[in-house]
Design a protein around this nucleic acid. Sequence first.
DNA 1: ATTGGCATGGGGTGATGTCCCCATCAGCGG
DNA 2: CCGCTGATGGGGACATCACCCCATGCCAAT
Lengths: 216, 216
Amino acid sequence: MTIRLLLVDDHAVVRSGLKMLLSGQKEMEIVGEAASAHEALTETERLRPNVILMDIGLPDKTGIEATREIKAKFPDVKIVALTIHEDEEYFFQMLAAGASGYVPKRAAPDELITAINAAADGEVYLYPSLAKLLVRDYLSAERPAEEKANLDGLTDREHEVLIHLAEGASNDEIAAALVISPKTVERHRENIMRKLNLHSRSELVRYAIRKGIIKA
Amino acid sequence: MTIRLLLVDDHAVVRSGLKMLLSGQKEMEIVGEAASAHEALTETERLRPNVILMDIGLPDKTGIEATREIKAKFPDVKIVALTIHEDEEYFFQMLAAGASGYVPKRAAPDELITAINAAADGEVYLYPSLAKLLVRDYLSAERPAEEKANLDGLTDREHEVLIHLAEGASNDEIAAALVISPKTVERHRENIMRKLNLHSRSELVRYAIRKGIIKA
DNA sequence: ATTGGCATGGGGTGATGTCCCCATCAGCGG
DNA sequence: CCGCTGATGGGGACATCACCCCATGCCAAT
């Protein structure tokens, strides 16, 4: 299936260059162009592209806002940011707006093509300098998860039971999952609660989420 | 500056293939190979490569553990995961272990080369199918900020009760705090659970944390 | 060889939770 | 004025939980 592309950039020269570059791709067809956020929205409505290449610096609004508006109306359209900006702020905002890729204009042509294909497949291409930022963010957010090591002296089995408890399972459900008696589950639960000084399942859930043992 | 590469994979055939593939690259030199996690550690110590291509399925330990150990001793070595696994679990664990890239073996040769160069430059290359997972994780983590508004049709009083429930309070404790009967608290709890389609306090706690109603 | 931790279970009791039934009263919009 | 919703409260049935008692078997360390 060929990919229907819409180019959004306020510089005609850039659009021409992209057309040159992408016209060689068999699987891609450039169905339209837009020079502003407003045009991008109307052209998306009219042409229904699969993938939009979106500049960030546009005359009327930012490409970030344009992305947000287009994704709100046409959630299936994949949008790849193509911009000179490698700022952390723009990048994260673009992700939050629903972008399926982020490629700086300095990237190699092959990388843009990879990004477009990935977006069309419902995946995400991130240029390495930006991917680094996202990974850094992930690691800072997940740092609590590293505390899996110090679990206040819980044994392996207790830790396993704790995961199920935190996910809201009943004793019987846990027993079935671990193929042990409900009584043993209860035994483990008691030990866990005593070691962690907790006294209800609700407290266990909060503890587990705080420690990164499970996600909320 | 040329990149000094160490190949870690228990299959000699794979290593040969990689040598063939990468020998064409001027900027790269393969300085060694390892067929196990243990060998990877000793060879890293002996050869001091810049970048390691790390398989995950190794005979003695997983490539994830090997990565963790190597990064602990040699934090400057960049490690790129090269594996058949595209599982979410492996991917996130590899990131947490300190990997600078993640490339499935089905990727195009160019992508591997891009990944190695990105890693050597201190950046991160993520294959699109994995990048998607990380973006999804990012978006789910960032959501709480905006969602405080929509509370799925809970009344003010119900929301108030929900806060106490999520903090692990018993019906009696909530009744005392709000100066109403425990029975009324129960009534509110029932309504909350029905509206949110939840069926235990544990689920309520997770819901509240996910929505940012309370902190973990 | 004995001690100790770990995992495995059974019994019991009282507290708590989950989910129904019922009702009253105030306020608000049609 | 009537019906609706929100907030209040009581009764009861049954399930689950929280916390005690007890025991056995295993493995590792002393």
